[in-house]
Design a binder for these strands. Structure first.
Length: 114
DNA sequence: CCGATGACCATTT
DNA sequence: AAAATGGCCATCG
């Protein structure tokens, strides 16, 4: 598949690490992850990392949404309904591709991780 | 090498 | 307050 530079791979792995730390029933945003990694302006690259996460480890990408709580990445899943189903399995209510109580369920790594 | 695109976000108008 | 614009950085044609 696509080849990546060692630097990029390092950044990707850091992203995966944070994503894997997200507790069940909680969600976070691309920007929050980028911020935690010290690259608050590189939220787009976090999205790329998630795109590449398919070939990497088992990443709970369904717990990562954009800052408004919308399931923007659901189109990249094997099936467009999988993301929502996975979230609902964890007790997260999804309405019209948006996470309900997103503000309350939001998990900020830079705050929750010491 | 250059221009366009993107699972985004913050600022400006 | 809603909509447009810019920035950011890696990937692709």
């Amino acid at each position: 598949m696509t080849k990546y530079n060692s630097k990029t791979l390092d950044f990707f792995e850091r992203v995966y690490k944070v994503v894997q730390l997200i507790p069940e029933g909680r969600v976070t945003s691309y920007g929050a992850i980028a911020k935690y990694l010290g690259a608050s302006k590189s939220s787009r690259i976090v999205g790329w990392a998630m795109n590449a996460s398919h070939n990497r480890y088992e990443i709970p990408a369904h717990r990562v949404v954009n800052r408004t709580g919308m399931l923007t990445g659901k189109l990249h899943f094997p099936t467009i309904t999988m993301m929502q189903e996975l979230l609902e399995l964890e007790g997260i209510n999804v309405n019209n591709d948006k996470v309900k109580d997103f503000k309350n369920l939001f998990w900020d790594p830079s705050i929750e991780i010491l």
